[in-house]
């Protein structure tokens, strides 16, 4: 899917992560992570990020992640929300039936 507009989901509060997605037409994925636990969880956060972007078939985007110690499912939720907003699409609830 195409990133039609910049979108943000999540907050800077403890246990949350703020995900921002910006259009980056033709220039691939540029993922920037800032985390209070980057050394420990950086790779897993990036892995989740790439997985969700792949589920949305987003290939061109600048993604900024500001992690405040979020659990994996919170990260996933924020990414899904940001992707839906950026691509102006609704979440496919039937996708995990």
């Amino acid at each position: 899917m195409i990133v039609k507009q910049p979108a943000v989901a999540g907050t800077l509060e403890s246990s949350d992560i703020q995900v921002s997605i910006f259009p980056n037409p033709g220039n691939g994925l540029d993922i920037q992570l800032q985390s209070i636990a980057k050394a420990q969880f950086g790779d897993s956060i990036l892995e989740t990020t790439r997985a969700v972007l792949a589920e949305f078939e987003i290939t061109d985007a600048v993604v900024s992640l500001v992690d405040k110690g979020a659990f994996d499912w919170v990260i996933r939720s924020r990414l899904q929300a940001a992707c839906c907003r950026a691509t102006e699409s609704k979440f496919n609830w039937k996708g995990e039936d």
Binding site: V8, T11, L12, E13, S14, K68
Partner: peptide
């Protein structure tokens, strides 16, 4: 207390 984070959040929005 992350007061700045909350403000930045609201202002960015």
């Amino acid at each position: 207390c992350n007061a700045l984070g909350r403000l930045v959040n609201d202002l960015t929005t």
